[in-house]
Nucleic acid binder design. Structure first.
Lengths: 111, 111
DNA sequence: ATAAATACCTAGCTGTTCTAGGTATTGAGG
DNA sequence: CCTCAATACCTAGAACAGCTAGGTATTTAT
């Protein structure tokens, strides 16, 4: 029974799903990508990002796969699931509804 | 050191300040007004609204004044302060920045 | 050598929001 | 007359997201 309530708190899930839906990504990459696309606005802390990814995985919206790359350190690539794609579609509509509502209230300030 | 972090969680403060800045209002009236202006989208519970008003008052952004009306029950009208008006201006800019950033990330989904 | 960037993780705090109750008055419907 | 809905305010407690602040380990540039 999610909905507008969750939107108030966390748009992070939506942002993560959106990026991962376009191509599999690993955590650190997502941080940089979000910062780049938003022109420096979104700077998520690791303590915010990684738990969020774990929540998404636990909810079955993404699946993480360890992949070694040249060197030694492993990267955990997250792939979107069907369920994740459906959720993203819902979240997108919810976001649009939300900012429509916000603007309906905020508009009258500067008449 | 507020800022984008707070936006994620609570836009309620912004909405409340916005309404109260236009005219002094009491709690119940604010609930109805928000619901009306947002075409039914915002339906804040009393357990959300009243503590939020108390927080705003404690922060010096609004001042509450008891006023009796025909009948018996008292209404507590909230007036915006100078500090509240300044905060509202900041919050408005923050909101615009936020949804600009959101749209920068969300746009590429449907190319 | 050592600093910075990459790459991942978690325990615990704070603070917002909702749930779920409470009080009290007025007016309408049966 | 009585009860219910609407008006009008309030709070304690739970739930949970996001931040703080720490940790590990590798590679590359200085």
């Amino acid at each position: 029974m999610a909905g507008r309530k969750d939107l108030m708190k966390g748009n992070i899930n939506s942002l993560l799903l959106c990026l991962i839906s376009q191509q599999p990504m690993y955590g650190y990459q997502i941080m940089k990508e979000l910062e780049g696309r938003s022109q420096g606005y979104f700077k998520f802390k690791e303590g915010t990002l990684y738990p969020a990814l774990h929540r998404l995985e636990k909810a079955g919206l993404v699946t993480g796969r360890w992949q070694p790359f040249s060197g030694g350190r492993q990267r955990r690539y997250y792939h979107i699931t069907e369920k994740g794609r459906a959720t993203l579609a819902e979240k997108t509509v919810e976001w649009q509804d939300f900012f429509t509502a916000m603007n309906l209230v905020f508009k009258p300030i500067t008449p």
